[in-house]
């Protein structure tokens, strides 16, 4: 499927229903202003790639969406539920939002299968047999069903990250957040993880992805967001973003990462 066709198809499927709404979001670490007046609407089925130099607040931004970080000003609404200090709301949102971390964060004392079944069993109250069936389904989808009985420590980085994606998918999330999913991987393993992510995107998953993989961004993203010093500096479809960036900072960033 061509990029343009994908974008058109997703727009059509999305029906412009807003899933995540950030309005005037601000966050500080002590004196340091990490997020400044972030406004962002994510539609159902939309794929957004967030890039920017380190320390620009891009990880913090997506970590605010499932409240691994607290924002101090502004509103974040996910699936119609506002993120507040109310633990019930937070739990409800976390159930619908899957997350994949840079360091995989698999549970080393549990097997791959147990890693995948844990949340469906304990959070969704699913019977074990059913949870295992779903887990095997998603492990097949990330192409490592044969590793189900192994422990995470016995797998390669790329395999671990694919398990982490399967683990998140087992909760049937409505949104997936990716926090630099390929940054801790050896180069030869990046592709296997990106392939899985591309597959997800093609199936219409709503995705927010912090990454430096510009090839991935170009082919998959509906919109690319460039952040710098806690602000959204530029937000545009990939074609426009790469060929005709408006801001000086974006131009500078692109010239730095696309040089090689």
């Amino acid at each position: 499927m061509s990029t343009a066709a994908t974008a058109v198809a997703s727009q059509a499927a999305a029906g412009n229903e807003v899933m995540i709404e950030l309005a005037g979001v601000n966050k500080w670490y002590g004196e340091f202003h990490v997020l400044r007046e972030i406004n962002l609407s994510v539609h159902r089925g939309e794929r957004i790639v967030i890039c920017g130099p380190s320390g620009s607040g891009k990880s913090t931004l997506i970590r605010c969406i499932n409240r691994l970080e607290e924002h101090q000003k502004g509103r974040i609404v996910v699936e119609g539920i506002e993120l507040t200090n109310d633990v019930k709301n937070v739990d409800q949102i976390r159930r619908e939002v899957g997350m994949v971390f840079q360091q995989f964060n698999l549970f080393p004392h549990l097997t791959v299968l147990e890693n995948c079944c844990l949340a469906p069993i304990w959070v969704r109250k699913m019977p074990r047999a059913e949870a295992e069936k779903i887990a095997m389904h998603y492990l097949e989808r990330v192409r490592i069903p044969e590793q189900a009985r192994k422990f995470p420590g016995q797998l390669s980085g790329g395999q671990q990250q694919r398990v982490a994606i399967a683990r998140a998918l087992c909760m049937s999330p409505k949104v997936m957040l990716f926090d630099e999913p390929t940054s801790a991987l050896d180069p030869e393993m990046i592709k296997e993880v990106l392939d899985v992510m591309v597959g997800l995107a093609q199936d219409g998953m709503t995705m927010l992805c912090v990454t430096h993989e510009m090839g991935f961004a170009r082919t998959v993203a509906d919109r690319i967001i460039f952040m710098d010093r806690g602000e959204i500096v530029e937000m545009a479809p990939p074609k426009e973003f790469f060929s005709n960036p408006r801001s000086e900072r974006t131009k500078q960033f692109l010239s730095q990462i696309l040089e090689h």
């Binding site: 739990d91 976390r94 971390f101 360091q103 964060n105 549970f107 959070v123």
Partner: peptide, 15 residues
């Protein structure tokens, strides 16, 4: 215990 373990458990919605 690495902080990531707590975060992964939180992100899955475990109480």
């Amino acid at each position: 215990l690495p902080k990531g373990q707590y975060e992964a458990a939180d992100a899955l919605g475990l109480t």
